[in-house]
Design a protein around this nucleic acid. Structure first.
Length: 222
DNA sequence: CGGCGGATCGACT
DNA sequence: GTCGATCCGCCGC
């Protein structure tokens, strides 16, 4: 099913958890690419030192301050682009960064997009990492603001018929279950801005997924 | 397989 | 002028 806008009108950690296992589909003239999301990070708006919204609204991050259910696309380090899904009430600027996914449709098209900007060693690397995921889907800055709740839109997010995910702390042994197991840990590349931000495990991923990007602890600044 | 360094540009302290 | 929510190639083990 395609969740409506209210589905995104929730606390960012709830949305982040439920995005795991969901599929994001992009349709272009070239064809269709569909990703099953395996790794995300939550960013909690103006109160979150790790968020682009921390220093308030500007032209670049304006989409995050708007309606939930839209994509926030930004340029990173001049070379790359990354994609978020906006959630929470307008004005709160919460968003979920999409970090990795498994290609479930359009693998050839996704692979060709990756080849245009580098070399792909394995299928699981096609959308492993936020910038790679963005390339695989063929998204760019002009897709900022795209509405993923429109079933006929160019970018659509769908959830499985049943989503019995189970959140579990990263330092606890896995629970025996047939349901998808969600693990959590510190966000990647967020220094903590004074050490406060990453006491919270706001990186979430599906346990055992080969498409999840390698764990790297946030760098510690003196 | 893991660590290291360079690339590259818009927004802003 | 500084600084990133990163990726890739190269190097060594």
């Amino acid at each position: 099913m395609v969740p409506d806008r209210d589905w995104y009108l929730r606390p960012v950690l709830d949305v982040a958890r439920d995005l795991l296992g969901a599929t994001l589909t992009r349709r272009t003239a070239d064809g269709v690419v569909s990703l099953r999301l395996t790794e995300v990070e939550a960013y909690d708006g103006e109160t979150d030192p790790g968020s682009h919204a921390y220093r308030g609204q500007n032209r670049r991050n304006a989409t995050m301050f708007g309606e939930p259910g839209h994509l926030y696309v930004y340029r990173h380090l001049g070379l790359h682009h990354c994609v978020n899904v906006v959630c929470g009430p307008p004005g709160t600027a919460s968003a979920v960064l999409l970090r990795a996914g498994e290609v479930v449709d359009g693998a050839d098209l996704a692979r060709s997009r990756r080849l245009a900007s580098g070399v792909v060693r394995a299928d699981r690397d096609i959308a492993r990492g936020p910038a790679r995921l963005t390339v695989a889907l063929g998204l760019h800055l002009s897709d900022d603001g795209a509405d993923v709740t429109d079933p006929h839109g160019a970018v659509v997010l769908e959830t499985p018929a049943v989503e019995p995910s189970l959140v579990e702390r990263s330092l606890v042994e896995p629970v025996e279950t047939s349901a998808a197991v969600v693990r959590t840990g510190p966000r990647v590349g967020v220094s903590g801005e004074g050490g406060s931000a990453d006491r919270f495990p706001w990186r979430l991923w599906l346990a055992g997924e080969p498409t999840v990007s390698a764990y790297r602890p946030a760098p510690v600044r003196p």
